[in-house]
């Protein structure tokens, strides 16, 4: 066990844990946009930056990535940190000037509007946090989408910006997206997963018993093959399967 201090509180931690993990375990709030506990940390949004003190010197680090060490002293809300977080929100607000999630988070931090000129404000929803890409790779293991292009031209997209053969329509990307940039809609036996720059349609499987459409055929086929289930395994939906005596 290691002892660290966050905002004056003495806390116990295990080697290999990050500052953010310890803070969350102990109910200390650090804002994040690109972090999800089930995915590898990425360190892109920089909102989780904190100030650490070691050997009389201070330094700003991304708490989602910084491994704890004995005697580490952390401040999560020094004026220095607050100013930096505000600027990061101003930058995000300039990119996503109409996005409600970003507007709300900014407002919570006391940023009502960006200092940038109106002519430069953009109306994006995606903040390029990469959660969707990591979910697709690490959880679903399909890697149907990736971060393409570089720098200011970077975007989340399937190869060639066309419906990806690897996408099974599970919707994990839409689920994990913090800003609603990727959306998913089920209607009349089809599912559409889409973002500003791409979309893919899926046929939904109809339950032989209740007649409800319940999941994309491609997704069910993928699971069936992966787990080596019988061909008729997904003919009925989970609800009906449970009710079978």
């Amino acid at each position: 066990m290691i002892t660290i201090s966050i905002d004056g509180q003495e806390l116990k931690a295990k080697e290999g844990q990050t500052i953010l993990e310890i803070a969350r375990e102990n109910g200390i709030y650090i804002p994040t946009l690109c972090y999800h506990e089930n995915l590898s940390p990425y360190g892109a949004c920089r909102l989780c930056c904190v100030e650490i003190f070691k050997g009389g010197r201070s330094r700003i680090v991304a708490s989602c990535l910084y491994p704890v060490e004995e005697g580490l002293e952390v401040k999560t809300n020094s004026p220095h940190i607050i100013n930096n977080r505000k600027m990061i929100m101003e930058l995000l607000l300039a990119r996503c000037s109409q996005n409600e999630v970003i507007k709300k988070l900014a407002s919570e931090m006391g940023v009502e509007q960006s200092a940038f000129k109106a002519k430069y404000l953009e109306n994006e929803d995606c903040i390029l946090c990469g959660l969707c890409v990591r979910a697709c790779e690490q959880i679903v293991e399909r890697s149907a989408i990736s971060l393409v292009n570089r720098g200011v031209n970077r975007e989340v997209a399937p190869p060639f910006l066309e419906p990806s053969a690897d996408c099974i329509g599970c919707g994990s990307c839409a689920y994990v997206c913090p800003t609603g940039a990727i959306k998913m809609e089920d209607k009349d036996g089809t599912r559409v997963v889409y973002a500003r720059n791409w979309e893919k349609e899926f046929k939904l499987k109809k339950c032989k018993k209740c007649g409800n459409y319940w999941a994309p055929e491609e997704q069910l086929e993928y699971i069936r093959e992966k787990l080596n289930l019988p061909p008729d395994f997904f003919d009925v939906c989970p609800n009906c399967r449970e009710s079978v005596p």
Binding site: S143, S146, L147, S164
Partner: peptide, 10 residues
Amino acid sequence: PLSKVYSVAT
């Protein structure tokens, strides 16, 4: 995965 190759190519 094709998405990774595409990512590198762009």
